[in-house]
Design a protein around this nucleic acid. Sequence first.
DNA 1: AAAACGGGGGC
DNA 2: GCCCCAGTTTT
Length: 209
Amino acid sequence: MLKADEVVRELQKRYRRRERKEEPFYTLIFTILSQRTRDEQTEKAAERLFKRYSNAEELADADIKEIEELIRGVGFYREKAKSVKGVALRIKSLGGVPDTIEELLKLPGVGRKTANCVLLYGYGIDALPVDTHVHRVSNRLGLVSTKKPEETEEALKRLLPEELWGYVNDLFIAFGRDICKPVAPRCRDCPFRKGCRYYLHTTSHITVA
DNA sequence: AAAACGGGGGC
DNA sequence: GCCCCAGTTTT
């Protein structure tokens, strides 16, 4: 049986956590662009966008078609352009990016995962964003037994000391991409094999690399 | 060539 | 709950 904090600490040896951004608006837009998209593509799109429009006031007046052009390369770019524009308008009228989950969730294109990322990377709060990697890895290893991402968030928070919450997203994503992949996980290379519920409970790892 | 994919919203 | 969105990586 694996312990959640031991998993996090082992992953801390192998992967780094993303920097916590000092600018919440940048973090908010970046995170929207990053939805279901890898960081390499997100970074290019964000760089083009912020080179042209550097803050909420400017972005609020931007042409949505131009936003679409600038962020091309990320998936769902039309939906995201709409969200970016909508968020910029809201932030402009609010006078700043909210720092509570409730207020962040009211923004267009912002769900629980994105809101938690803003709290974590934008405000340095010990939030615990749960994306599909975090959800899958946590359940596979047997750390939690949950159906919905929100349940995973609550369960992991109970299992981990607060100072580790902020590492879960980045480290589990990296681990989930390299080793504990959605399909054909590389169990042979996994440091948690011995205590992993999935590995012990399934035979599929025998037939994969 | 086809399947799978680092969310969120609308229904 | 089901389906859509869209470019990129994996198989």
